[in-house]
Amino acid sequence: MELESLGAFLKTRRDRITPAAIGLHTYGVTRRVPGLRREELAQLAGVSAGYYTRLEQDQAGTASEQVIDAIARVLRLDQAETAHLHNLAGRSSTPRLVAPAVEQANPRVLALLDALGETMPAVVLGRRGDVLAWNRTGHALFAEHLDFDAPADPDRRPSIPRQFFLDPLTRDLHRNWAELARIHVAYLRLTAGRHPTDARLAELIGELAMRSGEFATLWAEGEVADCTVGRMQLHHPTVGGADVDYQVWLQPDSPDHRLEVYTPRDASSADALRLLAAGVSGVEATAAGALSRR
C-alpha cells in the first residue's frame, strides 16, 4: 500500500473547512463541494489557484515552508496536523519503500521499565506500535491472553494496532474503543508522514485497511494526532472495571519509541491495578520457586 500523499491530505483538510467557519460569505450560492473551493483556499493562502491545484494533484514539486504554513493557517490545522503537512510536503512524491532494521528498545528505557516494578502497568512501544517490552502488570492489564515473552522475539511481537482492530478480546477490553480507535489511526498517519519509506509500516496500514472496514473508514477521514496522554476505560476479564490514564515518556535518543505508563483515575481503578500487581507478583514467586528447585 502506498502511504498518503500531500495532495490527498490537503483535500481531506479542505473538505472539512466550511466558508462560514473562516468568515467567507457565499451569499446563498449553491456549492458543489463540502468545504472550501481550491481557488478560495489559494486566495486566502496568498498563492495562485493554479499552483495550489498542482499541489493538490501532487504535481508541484517541493513547496516552501512559508507556503505550507500559510495553507496550514487557512485550514486551521493544529500542531500535529501542521507537522504532518510539512512532512508530506518535504518528501518526494513517490518515496521508495525499504525494509527497516529490527527495532530494539534502548537499554535506558528498559532500565526505567525495570525500575517501575510491578505496581504500575507499563509498555514500551516501537514506531509501528509493536510491543518491544512490558512489565508483567502491563501484560496482565492489556494482553493476558498472549505470551508474556512474545516481545523478545521480533517475529512474535504483539502489534497494538493489529490487536486493536483485529482481535475481539482486545476490542472487548476497551469500553471507549471507538474513541481510542480514532486516536490509533490518527497516530499511525502521523508516523507514516515521519517515515514515508518504512515498508513494514506501509504493510501494516494496508493489512488493516483490507481486513478492517472500521480502520479503512477512519483512515479515509485523514485525521492526524500525536497521542501522548489520554484515558482508557477498561472492562478487564479478571479484575473488572478500571478507568486509567495513559501518559507517554519519550526518549530523546530514540524518539520513535514510547514508554506508556498507566495510572488509575479513581479509587476502584486503583484497587483493580493493585489486584493485578498482586497476581503477577504471585506468578513471579511461583516461577522463582520452580527455578530454585531445579
Results as ranks from 00 to 15, higher is better:
178 A>G: 10
107 P>A: 08
219 W>A: 05
86 H>F: 12
94 T>N: 15
67 V>C: 07
211 R>T: 05
255 P>K: 09
184 H>E: 15
100 P>K: 04
43 Q>R: 09
284 E>W: 04
289 G>E: 13
72 A>F: 06
123 V>H: 01
255 P>T: 12
133 A>E: 07
2 E>G: 00
10 L>D: 02
118 E>H: 12
68 I>S: 06
152 A>R: 14
178 A>Q: 15
231 R>C: 13
112 L>R: 11
188 L>I: 11
176 N>K: 09
277 A>V: 02
154 P>Q: 06
237 P>G: 07
224 V>L: 06
70 A>M: 11
258 R>K: 14
192 A>E: 13
64 S>E: 10
251 Q>P: 02
200 R>L: 13
106 N>L: 10
229 V>N: 12
76 R>I: 07
221 E>G: 12
249 W>V: 14
198 D>G: 07
161 P>W: 01
101 A>W: 03
247 Q>V: 04
157 R>M: 01
108 R>Y: 12
263 T>K: 01
223 E>A: 15
2 E>Y: 08
210 M>C: 06
275 L>T: 12
220 A>T: 09
222 G>P: 13
206 G>Y: 12
164 F>N: 10
188 L>R: 13
123 V>L: 04
171 R>S: 11
78 D>G: 14
169 L>E: 15
7 G>M: 02
8 A>I: 00
140 A>D: 09
46 G>K: 07
276 L>G: 07
104 Q>L: 11
42 A>I: 02
214 E>N: 12
10 L>E: 00
220 A>R: 11
43 Q>Y: 01
1 M>N: 02
196 P>A: 00
10 L>R: 04
228 T>K: 12
146 L>D: 10
106 N>E: 14
290 A>T: 08
203 E>N: 08
193 G>F: 11
36 L>W: 01
117 G>K: 04
63 A>E: 06
162 R>A: 13
286 T>C: 09
32 R>S: 04
206 G>D: 14
39 E>M: 04
186 A>Q: 11
239 V>M: 01
206 G>T: 13
36 L>E: 05
131 V>R: 04
226 D>G: 00
146 L>C: 06
